[in-house]
Simulated assay, not measured.
Amino acid sequence: MTEQPAVERPTQRSRAKADRRAALLDAAAALFAERGYNGVSIEDLGSAVGVSGPAVYRHFPSKQAVLAALLVDVSQGLLDGGAAVEERSDDAAGALRDLIAFHVDFALGAPDTIRVQDRDLDALPTAERREVRRLQRRYVDVWTHVLGTLHPALGADELRVRVQATFGLINSTPHSARIGSEPVAEAQVRPVLERMAWAALTSR
């Protein structure tokens, strides 16, 4: 009988560190969205999660590193999630509907991150900005592959335009899904976004 290798379990300290890192990123998304990257200090980030400003440096070496982690992590999460959706779907039409639902989930769940991405991407160092763009291109590729399978007559340029336009539609929700200063209920927004995205992607 082959002895199985021991599975290393996270310690309480490592879990606490991971939780604090996640809390800092959540706080950064909210603060950067509200004030802009340049309007937020390390002390503001620490205060938002109940620690001193210098304690933030135990998790991130700089404010730029916080922004980089926020945008790289979300870009990687979208790519991984989109690839998983495609892999588990039985056909192209089902995959496209599931990709739409997946991205709507993201847009409704992370409006602050979308605002930060739109406004503060250029504040990243060059290497991290390029990594975000690389991950985003690969995420677009997942969508264009599915859409191209569903509509093989469409050329590569049109596939990409349709996908990018659909992202623009769905990602507008931090601004468009409001009446005055009040957000519209998710139950009202979601079906509208999903119908419009499907129409934009599959119109002939």
Rank of each mutant, 00 (worst) to 15 (best):
E43I: 15
I42K: 08
H103A: 02
E182F: 05
D80S: 15
S89Y: 11
V104G: 00
K63E: 02
V146C: 07
L193T: 03
L31M: 04
R58I: 06
G81L: 11
L31R: 00
V51S: 04
F167N: 14
L159S: 05
P183V: 02
A30H: 00
L99K: 09
D105F: 07
S203V: 14
D19S: 04
D80P: 08
G77I: 05
L154H: 02
H59D: 13
S181Q: 14
A55H: 13
D91C: 09
A33P: 03
L193V: 07
R130V: 08
L67V: 13
S62D: 14
I100C: 05
P152W: 00
L25D: 02
D26F: 06
L159W: 01
Q12D: 00
A185V: 12
D80C: 08
L121Q: 06
W198A: 05
G53F: 10
E131D: 10
A177C: 05
A65I: 12
A69D: 15
A123Y: 09
T173D: 01
V163N: 02
H151Y: 03
P152A: 11
Q64E: 15
D44Y: 06
A93H: 14
V51E: 04
D120Q: 06
A107W: 02
P174C: 10
A28I: 09
V116P: 03
A197I: 12
L121D: 02
R133L: 09
Q136S: 11
G36T: 14
A16R: 08
R162G: 00
L78G: 06
T149N: 06
L147N: 01
R178N: 08
G36W: 00
H103F: 06
R138F: 09
G94C: 13
P191I: 04
L147Q: 01
Y57N: 12
W198Q: 03
V192G: 00
P174K: 09
A153H: 12
I100R: 03
R204W: 01
T149K: 07
Y37G: 04
Q12L: 14
G180Y: 01
L71C: 05
G77L: 05
L193A: 01
A55E: 04
A156L: 10
R21A: 08
E86A: 15
G50V: 08
L71G: 02
L25A: 07
Q117D: 09
L124H: 04
P111W: 00
F60Q: 08
T2P: 12
G168T: 13
L108V: 13
V7I: 14
G82C: 10
V7G: 03
G39S: 14
L121M: 08
E131F: 03
P125E: 08
R13I: 06
L121V: 14
R134H: 09
N38F: 06
